[in-house]
Amino acid sequence: MTLALRHARVRYGPLEALHGVTLTAPGPGLTVLLGRNGSGRSTALRALAGTVPLAAGAVVWDGADVTRLPAYERARRGLCLVPERQAVFGSLTVRENLALTPGGENAALAAYPQLEPLLPRRAGTLSGGEQRMLALARALSARARAVLVDEPTQGMAPAVAARTYALLASLDACVVLAEQRLPPALSAPRTVVLYELRRGTVVFSGEAAELRGRPNAQG
């Protein structure tokens, strides 16, 4: 199971955000896209998910070219995107958000028991970390084949963040995370594929130990 960009270019009006990016995320396993704001990491996630169109290049999933497949069809085939913002339905309660997930409330609460007392509250009233838990609980319980998450632990307490990375690493799926820096929880000897992006291009690909040995490393 692999999800890949092949010489992908993405434009926002006259500005090109990805300049011929090629990367491959194997699965089951974790791939991390590293980069500061404006590096193109979030755009790469959206290109894989189909929420932004390619100006050139291709998206390949399990050997099939899905470039022209709309985002909702990729979702039907098992791809789940958790964006950095607007990842939950703010006007619905936590319980109603979870009811929209194929895995249901029980599976979501098993991932994040902290959500149980929040079930009656509207999702829009939750803190940033609580909203991330809710969004990820839905993704984790959806049994997706590919899970793409932008800034998965933003606003979370350290213990909850560590649990989040453990949950993502345990999935039997192709998991792609967009991060500003390599999280300590993912820098252990386990195999994690890394790509570092700068200004819309890939400047490094490899593993954590290799990245840490480079000047100006993001980790």
Rank of each mutant, 00 (worst) to 15 (best):
L3W: 09
L5T: 03
L5G: 06
R6Q: 10
H7W: 04
R9I: 06
R11C: 13
Y12D: 15
Y12W: 15
G13E: 14
A17S: 15
L18P: 11
G20R: 12
G20D: 11
L23E: 11
T24H: 15
G29N: 08
V32T: 04
G35W: 10
G35C: 11
S39I: 10
A44E: 06
L48E: 08
L48K: 07
A49D: 08
L54T: 13
L54E: 10
A55Y: 05
A56K: 04
G57T: 05
V59E: 13
V60W: 06
D62Y: 02
G63L: 14
L69E: 15
R74V: 14
A75P: 04
A75W: 12
R76H: 08
C80A: 05
R85K: 10
Q86I: 02
F89K: 09
F89H: 10
G90P: 03
G90T: 14
T93C: 03
E96I: 05
N97F: 10
L100P: 03
T101N: 07
P102M: 09
G103Y: 03
G103T: 03
L109A: 00
A111Y: 00
P113R: 01
E116T: 14
L119Y: 06
R121K: 04
E130R: 01
Q131M: 09
A135I: 08
A135W: 05
S141V: 04
S141M: 11
R143H: 15
V149E: 13
Q154T: 11
A157N: 10
P158V: 01
A161P: 01
R163L: 07
Y165C: 05
A173T: 12
L177V: 11
E179R: 01
Q180N: 06
P183Q: 11
L186E: 03
A188Y: 03
A188D: 13
R190K: 00
R198Y: 08
G200R: 14
T201F: 05
E207G: 06
R214C: 10
A217W: 05
Q218M: 07
